[in-house]
């Protein structure tokens, strides 16, 4: 059996040397260049950001300006319609409660809601009061608009 055994031996001339030397990656920039480049690019992009920001601010200012120019016109129209509707509401309440003895419009059997203010003061009603004679859908729509805008 001893003749059959053959030991694995190194190749003739020996093994190649083990390659252990470090090969560093190729460097494109050195440290100072990287830091300066970081600051340079940041400064450049800050400038671009500023330009964009300024233009957005300008657009928003223009939108707001147009709204302010139209505001008196819209408010005047709204006020007129609002006062008409207040009168309609008061008439509707009077008509609705005409069979209730002792009922006075805007009060609870003659007892006013606001005692300390002069009688002629216009207390603007809340949405619920303003829409009390209207369809619920209209009220919900208005409330939705008011609360989410």
């Amino acid at each position: 059996m001893a003749e059959c055994l053959r030991q694995d031996m190194p190749p003739s001339g020996g093994y190649k040397p083990i390659y252990y030397k470090r090969i560093p990656a190729k460097t494109y920039f050195n440290g100072p260049a990287l830091i300066l480049g970081y600051f340079g690019i940041t400064a450049g992009s800050c400038y671009l950001y500023y330009l964009n920001y300024a233009s957005i601010q300008r657009e928003e200012l223009e939108r707001r300006s147009a709204q302010f120019a139209l505001y008196p016109l819209l408010l005047a129209e709204r006020d007129r319609e609002y006062m008409k509707q207040l009168r309609r509401n008061r008439d509707a309440e009077e008509d609705l409660m005409k069979n209730v003895k002792g009922w006075e419009v805007g009060t609870y059997y003659g007892k006013p809601i606001y005692r300390t203010v002069p009688k002629d003061t216009l207390i603007e009603p809340s949405y619920g009061e303003y829409y009390v004679h209207a369809d619920y859908k209209d009220f919900a729509k208005r409330r939705h608009l008011a609360y989410w805008s």
Partner: peptide
């Protein structure tokens, strides 16, 4: 509603 007959 707070709008009474006295409210002009």
């Amino acid at each position: 509603m707070g709008i009474t007959k006295d409210t002009v």
